[in-house]
Simulated assay, not measured.
Amino acid sequence: MSGFDIGQDIISYVALGDSFTEGMDDPYPGDSAVPQGGRYRGWADRLAEHVADTGTEVRYANLAVRGKLIRQIIDDQLPRAVELRPDLVTFCAGGNDIIRPGGDPDLVARVFEGAVRRLTDTGATVVLFTGADTASQPVMRHLRGRIATYNMHVRAIADRYGCPVVDLWGMAALHDRRAWSEDRLHMSAEGHRRLALRVCEVLGVPAEGDWDAPWPDLPAPDWRLARQADLHWAREFLVPWIGRRLTGRSSGDGRTAKRPNLEPLR
């Protein structure tokens, strides 16, 4: 981890990726929802806040945009990240490629490695992420094989380039449905909070809280309510997602990065 030292007076941090890194679905305190064009918080913002809490000045850019495929991230975000020459980079990409029909984790991994090479050449510490285990999500369970294959590639790439890895697959706390938002694809605010703490642990950043703390007990499941929730999810989230795939649209169309420049965290 050549470019990152928690003892520095100033740390520059750039986050690259898609909706996972943009912060969906984690609204800022006081906002019950984020309106069209609004800004989410997310684990990357929370990570920057934790670093700043140590007394270090943090200059932070978040280039992530929801819905982006890996080649779009490389074309649109990677050159800017290299230009900024940060001390710390978090890079998570490829998930949107893999969950699409015919997604090839081997091909995505080859593209991913080229990006990691360019990022590590800057001297930055580049943090990588495995995909989360979808065993607890019935609609996504069939993707476990692709995700596991991609995860093995990510770990091998991390070994080759000396990158720390945040293992989402092994985070049992993410197996609880409360770690995920209503759309069952993005993390909830609590999921983002726990993930930020896990990234801090990997980087050696002191932070208050336990990402692996037990969840409070849930009442016994009600199958009628569960079926109603499934129907609501299909109507509100699955059908629109399929519609975007069929028409070649993306949730990120027309959107730009929420923090395109390295700016002091306030």
Rank of each mutant, 00 (worst) to 15 (best):
residue 133 D to Q: 09
residue 60 Y to P: 01
residue 163 C to I: 09
residue 245 R to D: 15
residue 35 P to H: 00
residue 109 A to P: 08
residue 176 D to N: 06
residue 147 I to E: 01
residue 164 P to G: 07
residue 151 N to I: 12
residue 264 P to D: 04
residue 215 W to N: 06
residue 90 T to W: 03
residue 262 L to M: 06
residue 23 G to Q: 14
residue 213 A to T: 12
residue 28 Y to D: 06
residue 243 G to I: 12
residue 29 P to C: 02
residue 245 R to S: 12
residue 241 W to A: 13
residue 233 W to M: 10
residue 67 G to W: 00
residue 153 H to M: 10
residue 74 I to F: 01
residue 28 Y to T: 06
residue 120 T to D: 11
residue 77 Q to L: 10
residue 38 G to I: 06
residue 245 R to W: 15
residue 53 D to F: 04
residue 14 V to I: 02
residue 23 G to I: 09
residue 8 Q to R: 15
residue 265 L to H: 05
residue 57 E to K: 13
residue 259 R to N: 09
residue 38 G to T: 04
residue 110 R to C: 06
residue 177 R to Y: 04
residue 197 L to E: 00
residue 238 L to F: 11
residue 251 S to K: 11
residue 73 I to N: 09
residue 240 P to N: 09
residue 236 E to Y: 06
residue 7 G to R: 15
residue 211 W to V: 04
residue 264 P to Y: 11
residue 90 T to S: 15
residue 215 W to I: 05
residue 52 A to Q: 14
residue 188 S to H: 01
residue 225 L to W: 05
residue 52 A to C: 01
residue 134 T to W: 13
residue 119 L to M: 05
residue 115 A to C: 01
residue 136 S to T: 15
residue 212 D to P: 03
residue 239 V to L: 15
residue 259 R to V: 04
residue 202 V to H: 03
residue 242 I to Q: 13
residue 117 R to T: 14
residue 216 P to Q: 03
residue 64 A to T: 04
residue 56 T to H: 07
residue 147 I to D: 01
residue 66 R to M: 12
residue 34 V to Y: 02
residue 29 P to Q: 02
residue 113 E to K: 13
residue 176 D to S: 00
residue 242 I to C: 11
residue 35 P to K: 12
residue 156 A to M: 13
residue 68 K to A: 08
residue 6 I to L: 13
residue 239 V to A: 13
residue 103 G to Y: 00
residue 125 T to V: 07
residue 185 L to P: 03
residue 48 A to S: 11
residue 3 G to N: 05
residue 173 A to Y: 04
residue 148 A to Y: 02
residue 101 P to N: 01
residue 135 A to V: 09
residue 152 M to L: 10
residue 21 T to L: 09
residue 196 A to Q: 04
residue 227 R to D: 15
residue 101 P to V: 04
residue 116 V to T: 10
residue 88 L to F: 00
residue 92 C to I: 14
residue 116 V to R: 08
residue 221 P to W: 00
residue 204 G to N: 13
residue 251 S to T: 10
residue 14 V to W: 02
